[in-house]
């Protein structure tokens, strides 16, 4: 075989392998096996199987649900699938001082364990910033800006 032909065959083979690998990842069901976090509804749907295992739970902080005791850094809040009123919610307890960006309505990912008392205890609280970058407005944070700052989740 001439080297040119061989090289072109190598190219064809590599492109075929690369393309099918990509298609497999993009359109296969690998996504179901690669779970970074569960949403509250997905975790609750697991029932008892979810208890005890160290997992990540992700969602949005329910407005009005945040209780924080600065003295004992005891933080309690609810995480919901979305901002819809009927979204599934899970109560989260943390003994960690949250990142400064932590606020009502923002997206969070917490690592810890869910237990039978329906409380998710975490010692690793991460804040999930949205892809929006806004200059502060003169009025501080008007109603609209506050609403827009809520993490968009379906």
């Amino acid at each position: 075989m001439k080297p040119e032909t061989r090289n072109r065959l190598i190219a064809l083979g590599a492109i075929l392998v690369a393309g099918s690998a990509l298609a497999w990842i993009a359109f296969g069901n690998i996504g179901e096996n690669l779970v970074y976090y569960w949403k509250p509804s997905e975790m609750v749907a697991q029932g008892q199987k979810a208890y005890g295992a160290t997992v990540r739970l992700g969602g949005v902080v329910v407005p009005g649900s945040v209780l924080f005791n600065t003295e004992h850094t005891a933080l309690t809040f609810q995480v919901a699938d979305s901002h819809k009123g009927d979204a599934v919610k899970v109560t989260v307890k943390s003994e960690q001082t949250p990142p400064q960006m932590f606020r009502e309505g923002i997206g969070v990912v917490v690592e810890g364990a869910f237990s039978a008392d329906q409380v998710f205890r975490t010692n690793r609280l991460m804040v999930n910033h949205s892809n929006e970058y806004r200059a502060p407005t003169d009025g501080g944070m008007p109603d609209e800006a506050w609403k827009n700052s809520l993490t968009k989740a379906e």
């Binding site: 779970v35 970074y36 976090y37 949403k39 991460m126 999930n128 949205s130 892809n131 929006e132 970058y133």
Partner: peptide
């Protein structure tokens, strides 16, 4: 494709 901690790409409007 997957749930992630990293945000999605910003666009001009965000």
């Amino acid at each position: 494709w997957w749930n992630s901690l990293h945000q999605v790409q910003s666009t001009g409007s965000t």
